[in-house]
Structures are given as structure tokens and as C-alpha cells.
Design a protein around this nucleic acid. Sequence first.
DNA 1: CTGTTAGCGCTTTCAT
DNA 2: ATGAAAGCGCTAACAG
Lengths: 339, 339
Amino acid sequence: MDGRGNAPVTLEEVARRAGVSPSTVSRILNGTARVRDSKRQAVERAIADLNYRPNVMAQGLARGSSMSVGVITQDIASPFFNEALKGIEDSLAKAGYAPLFVSGHWKKEKEVECMSLLVARRVDGVIVLTGMIDDASLMEYAARLPLVITGRNLHGPNVVSIQANNEQAGYEATCHLIELGHTRIAHIAGPEANVDAQQRLEGYRRALREHGLPVDERLIATGDFHESSGLLAVNQLLETRLNFTALFVANDQMAYGARLALYRKGIRVPEDMSIIGFDDLPSSLYTTPPLTTVRQPAYDLGKIAGDAMLGLIHGQDYAIPTIPLQVIVRESTMRRRGP
Amino acid sequence: MDGRGNAPVTLEEVARRAGVSPSTVSRILNGTARVRDSKRQAVERAIADLNYRPNVMAQGLARGSSMSVGVITQDIASPFFNEALKGIEDSLAKAGYAPLFVSGHWKKEKEVECMSLLVARRVDGVIVLTGMIDDASLMEYAARLPLVITGRNLHGPNVVSIQANNEQAGYEATCHLIELGHTRIAHIAGPEANVDAQQRLEGYRRALREHGLPVDERLIATGDFHESSGLLAVNQLLETRLNFTALFVANDQMAYGARLALYRKGIRVPEDMSIIGFDDLPSSLYTTPPLTTVRQPAYDLGKIAGDAMLGLIHGQDYAIPTIPLQVIVRESTMRRRGP
DNA sequence: CTGTTAGCGCTTTCAT
DNA sequence: ATGAAAGCGCTAACAG
């Protein structure tokens, strides 16, 4: 039951069938004004009979808003960001907004293209999850449309940045290791261009300093947040023969790679080497052994980003909750043994 | 440099600035007709000066196509489907189409809602990744818009189904174990409502039969494709005290859970128990030990789905490549030892 | 309360 | 080759 032929039913057809004017139908659809009950019912029946759904594009054109928000992510298939995307989707859905996901693939130019695409689609705002675009360009975009962005410290009337205290979390992760008696602790850092990664590294440094432990630069390797780089980094670290007994890895994915490298060398976790990761991906609960890590509530982060965007769009204030980061102790870390 | 104030630049402004009519600009934009070079240049300059981007919604309204395709997935954060989404995104992007992702959360009614939402947005087609909707409803939708769907065997002028031979792959996975000398092989199956899962189970059964091995129903547990259910299933299987030495798990996520359950019991992999999974998630390369599994090329699958959709939309024939499934032998399986 | 009338920004005949 | 004009489906004043 879908009207004639194949063309989607239009508001006008509904109006005709219900014997009212198009505006009345529109009013009922949007609750823009009171309408006599008899007409309302007629319209509602017509809508049901014809299985009518308003054309969102037409609505968008008419009211100048697309009911969609762009989401720029680096890699739509990254386990961490996916959780966040889910949060965004859920948040937006309840307000009738649809997310438009685009991937920047860690390339600045690609991100600019994405922005352009989103602008062409007239999204009502854009959420940038850890972008590579520089702050200045971002602020320019913010002049045209609401922006919420993570891992950046930007402010303005049309911008909200969502931040977690990565430095503190890096500090606490390292402290966890120190409290277990470890004194030679290596670190696998994330990409230098990544602010979160830098802050985690800073936290690591501060923890060592505050506990009177030396910071040995040879014990700091750099990865790209993917598993393979964690594996490489451990091999490189091992080659220094510096006899570290614990490892703080800047994200769980690299920790998986690190763990495999250790497995290959016959170094046991946690008996011979303690590992703490960062993110608490869903699968970190199922590694062998389950990974001690810093929980970053990705889903909540997405939800918060979505809510913040909705707040921006509707001109309502929305108090951004702070993102709580928390060390989750599982089985990949233990008290240092031996000398 | 963006025209006056904050409102996006329109085609009309471009036309005015270039001293031509709107239609001319449109023609240049779409290559619909030849235009004198001088005008073309003027228009191109105006576009650049004003930083103009056509309003996709307006284009959509005018030409009756939204340049977007809906993608119904069960869980936008599932590691397997994400890879596929990436493939879809890449495929669609090159034709200027944008994917609109919606999650059905394994609920039939939710999926119907999603469909409705997509219809409202006038998507030019929809890709259903392993949906729960029944075939009949699906065929009804197909009457209105192009449909490509995985894990289903539907046919029609407006539908293409993309299938992999899960039965055969399940068969081969089990054979791999048999060839290693295992005779008591347990299976952790996926949800009964899932066609792929059922076929993998069928393949398992056939392999045992063809090798003259008994099929013991007590050695078949059922999970829900998530890690936790794999863990539970192994515990349950172990309680039978049936002394199986190998395990074929219907997807990698459950295999991770299974592997942890084994770790907890002190059962070594692969020395005491061989495990083969299914999917070959990116992280399966990094489990300890790296997981032997059946590779399902999720990214390619997405790409194929996207290409098929493009074919449908443009009315071109597109030969659907068969999805190759392949056993990837890594380190979680080994020759059976002992008696 | 409700119908009429303009658009929203673009495409596409139809003339010229 | 190019401009004028008529929509695409909906919303939002503006009059009643």
C-alpha cells in the first residue's frame, strides 16, 4: 500500500487524500500548530494508508537544516573509535539526527576533503574525533558550523572540546607499575603528532621523576597505535638489553603486538614482564592473560560528543562531563620478582 | 572568502558573479552540455572565489536521488562488520555516494525502523549486512529500491545477494583438525537464527561424517558470536569430560573467549588443545598464540557489496565475485599428541 | 484553526 | 550555446 506506482508518496498526496491543505499536514507532522481533531485523524489515517514518510531532503531544503551531523574519524574500523561511533549514533538518534561517518585515514588533506564533503551535504555540525587538521583551520570551520572535537583544547562560541586527562592517566598507569616494585619501566608511545599520545608519555615521565626513578630515553619506543608497531617496538626495546621488567604501552592495540613479541621470545607475562595498556578495548578482557589497562570509556565519550553537538545545534548549554580515566587491574601486571 | 555573511554560497550567486545564468553554471557543474570556454572560465573562477559547493540536498530534490546508500548493520562496533563498512565506504566514495550507517542491534523491529529511516532519507539503495528481517519483507523493499544483501539467498531484478560458502569453509576447518590427527573435535556454534552459523555447523558435521568420525551432540555448544559466550561454551564443553582435543569455533570473537577459558583451566594451546576460529579478524594475528582461522575477507566483502550496489543503481551488470574463504594456519593448532 | 502563496537551491525542459 | 521558467517536496509567513 504505497500510493501509485513506485514513486514515493508525497505530502501533497496525503493532503489530497485527507481532504485538507498541505500546510495542515505539515503542521500535524511537525506539531507546529493546533489542528482540529477530525482533520488530524483524517490526516493520520491517510499517512498510515499511504505509508507516507516525509522526504528528509525536501524538509532539509525548506528549513535549512539537514538533520545530520558529520563525524570525522581516522579509521572507521578502529576498535576504539567504533565504540565512540556507537555512542554518537545513539545520542544523535534520539533527536532524529543521523550521523554521517567519514574517514580521514590520518591524512590532513583527506580530512579537509571530508570537511568539504560534509559541507556539501549541509550537515548541521561536525564532530571531529582526534583529527589531524590544525587548530586554525578548525576555528575557521567553527565560524560556519557547530564543532565538537576530541583531544584538542579549543574554545569559542561554536566549539566544544572534549578532553580526558591523558597525562594524569599515563601517570597513574606508570605509578601502578612502580607500586608493584618495578623500577625499569619501558614505554611504547603513540605517534608524535598525536596529542593524547604525547600526554600519556608526559605522565609516564612525571611518574618516574616523582618517584626518583631515572628517565632513560632508550626505554622509550614509538609506535603508530597499531598492533604491528607494538611488536616491533618490543623487539627494539629488548635489543637495548636494559633489562626492564615492565612496560607501559600507549594503547591496547600496540599492547597486543607487544604481548606477542614477548610470547615469541619466551618471556612470560606477567611473571617476567608486566604490561599495562591504554583504552580498555572490549577484547582486552579476553587476552591471555587479560590485560591490565587504563579504561577510556569510548562509548560514553561518543555519547557525550553527540549530546554536546545537540546542545550546540539547539543553542542550549550542555555541561560537558569530564571523561573519567581509570586503571583497571587485571592479570598482565604483577609484583616484581627477583633481585 | 565565502560570500556574504554566514549563509552558504548558492549557485545563483555564482551565476551572478560570473555574469551567466544559473543553468549555465549547472551545466558546467554536471557536464550536461558544452559551454563556451570564456564562460566556463568565468564560472570556474567564481566558484573558486566564492568557495562554492553545490548543496547536495537541493541536487537530490531536483534530480530525485540522494547520492547516498543506506547500510544496515547489526552493530556498528563489531570488529568483523567494521572492516566491511570500510570496504563499502571506499567503494561508494569513488562514485560520489555516501554511506548512511544504521544499526539493527540484532532486532527485527529495530531493523524495520532503520529501513523506514533510510526510506525517509530517500537513499538510492540499501545494503543489508546479515539482517534479521525475513526474506519476504526484504523482497517487498526490493520492489522500491535496489538491495544488496549478505548471507541470504535472494534473487530478483533489484536484488543481489552476496554469499560465501560457509558450509564448505566449516568443512575445511574441521578437516584441518582431522588431518592433524584429532578425532574428538568440539564445536562452538553461532546463534541458531544466523544462516552463516548454521552452515558452518553443517560443514563441521559433514567433515566428521565423511571421515567416519561420530558426531556427538554433546560436543556442540552454542554461543552468540561474542567473546563471553565462547568462554561459557568451553566451560560447558569441559564439564562433559568427553576429552576432546580440538575445537572449531564459529567465529574469532568466541574463539578469544574460548582461549581464555582454557588459559584459566591451565589447558595449553595448542599443546593440549587445538583451536581454529572463523573470520580472521585483524587481531587474530596477535593473539597468543596467533589464531588458526578461516579467513573471510571482510573488507573485500564490503567493497563487493558497494560495487554491486553501484551496479544496481546505474543499471549496469556487475558480476559478483565469489567470496573466497580460506583456512589460515597459524599457531593455535597442532598435531595431536599422546594416545 | 486553516488555506494560499512564496520560496529553499538545484536541474531540466523549452525556447531562442 | 544559453537563458527563462517550471518544478522537486516541504516549510513558513501571511491572510483569513
